[in-house]
Design a protein around this nucleic acid. Structure first.
Lengths: 226, 226
DNA sequence: ACCTGAACACCGTTCAAGT
DNA sequence: ACCTGAACACCGTTCAAGT
């Protein structure tokens, strides 16, 4: 029942998953752990350090395919497919936390979100080297793969997270004079959007992800063949 | 010299550009405008509304290629090229603000960051419709184009923004017991990263962007030809 | 109509003090 | 060794009051 850095980080992740990072305060976290907020500072160098630890813990759950999941004989395509889907699992399990993984400034320029840990980058590069990539090709693949993951997964998280958003719906008292972000009705002034509204609102996250991943692999294959 | 919503938003953007969104407080913004913080609430429904207005103002600077910049005879490739580069201009001009554009929850599921305004989406869809895309193709292009922009530009912003980061370097007193995010030295435990370190640290943002854009256009062309 | 003073509830963080 | 009480500086926000 004692406090520990690990317990603090896990509870912080819980709270972020429930209501978003902006509602995670040291004091509320302390309360949840049955402790005064000040006690947390024994284990954590302040709130920023805690958020960094949260990101690290999340990224640590990423499983880079190794001998257990994948024979070396399986190509780099299988390797990247498995990895991509595991990062997507992370994004889907933590839609409100994923923006942190995506946007917190990486410690080094070569730690690109969302694959922002030395362990993952090392395994990524080794995985491709072992499957026929040159050093240069592996590094280029790291760059395009991270951009691909970031774009697709953050977009998914933003949309899915919007439902769980921390902003409490203000009861509509219909009296605000200021410009309102609720543009629902203005759609009528944008005929194409209005016409395609239904189609635009459809959720095709799965297909989008698979298709874009497929194309990325094709693209990498072209460079790989050179 | 009087206060106005516009002046407030522009000053907020200035402050974010300088030190990041986390340092933008209502009170500091008031001080900068020579006014008490409470005065801002006449023009802005609180801090969240202000940030929303900041995002809106930034997105409003995106120029979707119209008759002025582009003949209808120019293909959809030229249209998307110009648009992509203008969104990239926005990201480069505001590396510390772009994460807001990227991660704030969109008002509607079809307003995908970073093209998150009705005006831009409408012009985007019309631009492609006028250049031979079907409704379905235009919507699919909107989805893949936004994912592409988000991934590449947010990654660029994160890296570039890290230099301007709001975290003040703590003078290294060399005494912290807690896990430290400064993993610089641990690189030695990751041989492949260590070996490719220099290559990984190189900034190829320009080429990456151009190349990925080129491939996206090829990919869209395949679907378009069907 | 526009800005302010005073106040409230809530933050992050430090540090001496308790056990 | 581990947690807390008290305190400080700083937040966002409301509202009655000033001009």
């Amino acid at each position: 029942m004692g406090l520990s850095r690990e317990r603090i980080v896990l509870t912080a992740i819980e709270m972020i998953d429930e209501k978003g990072a902006s509602t995670l305060t040291m004091r509320r976290l302390g309360t949840r752990l049955d402790v005064e907020a000040m006690s947390l500072y024994r284990y954590v160098n302040g709130r920023e350090d805690l958020l960094e630890a949260v990101v690290e813990a999340l990224v640590d759950t990423i499983e880079v395919p190794g001998p257990a999941e994948l024979q070396p004989v399986d190509g780099w395509q299988a390797f990247l497919q498995l990895l991509a889907h595991d990062v997507r699992r992370l994004a889907k399990e933590h839609p409100l936390a994923f923006p942190l993984v995506a946007t917190r400034h990486p410690a080094a320029p070569w730690l690109r979100p969302p694959l922002r840990s030395l362990r993952v980058v090392e395994a990524f590069l080794q995985g491709l080297r072992a499957r026929g990539f040159s050093d240069r090709q592996a590094v280029e693949a790291y760059r395009s793969f991270t951009s691909f993951l970031l774009g697709h997964l953050l977009l998914e998280s933003a949309v899915r997270g919007a439902s769980l958003s921390p902003v409490e719906e203000p009861l509509d008292e219909g009296g605000a004079d200021l410009p309102n972000q609720d543009q629902e009705l203005d759609v009528e002034n944008y005929p194409t959007v209005a016409r395609l509204r239904t189609s635009l609102a459809e959720d095709h996250a799965d297909e989008e992800f698979e298709e874009a991943l497929e194309h990325l692999l094709v693209r990498l294959d072209l460079e790989h063949a050179q």
